[in-house]
Design a protein around this nucleic acid. Structure first.
Lengths: 239, 239
DNA sequence: AAACGTTTGTGCACGTTTTCACAAAGCCAG
DNA sequence: CTGGCTTTGTGAAAACGTGCACAAACGTTT
């Protein structure tokens, strides 16, 4: 049967964890671990073992009862499911502080997302080389995208320019966008959008800090209202 | 009554959205908008209006029926609830590519998280200045943290050094950590951890891309198995 | 002061995600 | 080849998050 691909739809929450498993499994394979149980993998990923098993079960029944999972095979299966069997070059819009940092950050290329192009609207930046790639003008984005068959774009402009950048990316034929600005962007139906807002992550931490501070002095103050602030939370992956 | 603070516990999903509302409300206030309805705010934030109202209801009943919310007052309330009434200086561990980029990125300081210190284990980096702050040695982290009363640490080291960095941060007295490495770190109970893995976000997008690709050619192939791949998803905020 | 249009705050139903718990399945020893 | 130990895969329950729908509350107009 040719029908091995695209089985049942994988829940979004699981999709967000598969990359974490993938990374851990890769590391384990490197150091010679050939087999791993859901319990061990869960420990390393910082999650519940049952969750690991259910997540992996969406890929198919690739474990062996009483034994565990073959690390190498599992790596292959996750890569296949996530579409990581080949590289996905990305185009970065914005060659400012953040754009340069992303271009120079090896973590992208190392994990299958080489920088296939950088564009900026500012002529004074065009022509310079960051991360080994020459900056081109925003007007040339379509050529850049098509020449290397790029389908993922990264927005690293100032917030005010984010929507324009998104529009340019869509017009150039990109179908997935990772937005590093704090601005919410609108895109046509059918385009996937991911968002990373560095300040938001810090603000969430600030909330927990402030809560801790209140709780500390609260043990006395709160006794009046009868409220009691419980233990502490933990936060996991990016999402 | 003195008991105005720390009412019922706010759901994590709501905490993750409050910074988005905060940013939008700030912008609206800047351009002279004094009042806003849940409908308008929802539109700008790209979410459902009922969700906005429910989120805001955790802060208290600060809206006026038939009118909407007072923008300035709402900004104040969200800032208070998130603990953003004062700055939270952060210490960055790792002055490499990523650490330098973060230190130079204005988005941190602008939103209340000034870089209070940068440390690195590599002597050759110590003494250089990035983002206006002089890099100090990892051994001095405790002095850096205590001198400026820092409670938030940012890990921007290579993945292999992440756990050491976390240990150093905890030992220095930091109680919240934002981890930019792909490595899962273990911390004592009571320490909050946030994680941003740039590659994971791209891998999630790759999954959607690959799914789209399969669906495109699948219309013929899948007719055999009777499977049909539905429309398309959308992804929102960071976490 | 009543009638009207608007918008909040929230009960309820629904969908998704997590966790529990255990039968089925494999390996190994004797 | 039987019995015991281990670990998977998955139903079912619980917890959580989302969106609808509507009563209650407010301002305005007559």
């Amino acid at each position: 049967m040719a029908a091995q691909r695209s089985r049942r739809r994988i829940p979004e929450a699981t999709v967000a964890r598969l990359p974490v498993y993938l990374r851990i499994l890769g590391e384990q394979f490197e150091i010679g671990v050939a087999n791993i149980s859901s319990e061990e993998l869960a420990e390393l990923a910082g999650v519940n073992a049952a969750k690991v098993r259910k997540d992996l079960s969406y890929l198919g029944s690739y474990g062996t009862r009483g034994v565990g999972y073959d690390v190498e095979f599992l790596v292959y299966q996750i890569r296949r499911e996530l579409g990581l069997t080949h590289d996905w070059p990305v185009v970065i819009v914005g060659a400012g502080n953040l754009g340069q940092a992303l271009a120079g950050y090896n973590g992208f290329g190392d994990r299958g997302f080489p920088v296939g192009g950088i564009v900026d609207i500012d002529d004074s930046k065009v022509g310079s080389v960051v991360g080994g790639v020459r900056v081109r003008h925003l007007d040339e984005i379509k050529q850049v995208v098509q020449a290397r068959n790029i389908s993922i774009g990264v927005i690293a402009t100032p917030g005010a320019a984010a929507q324009d950048a998104a529009d340019s990316l869509v017009a150039a034929g990109v179908t997935s966008i990772l937005n590093f600005t704090p601005t919410v962007i609108n895109v046509p139906h059918g385009i996937s959008v991911g968002k990373v807002d560095l300040a938001v992550e810090l603000q969430i931490l600030a909330y927990h800090e402030q809560r801790r501070a209140n709780a500390a002095q609260g043990s006395v103050m709160q006794s009046l209202s009868g409220l009691l602030i419980p233990g502490e939370s933990r936060r996991g992956a990016s999402a």
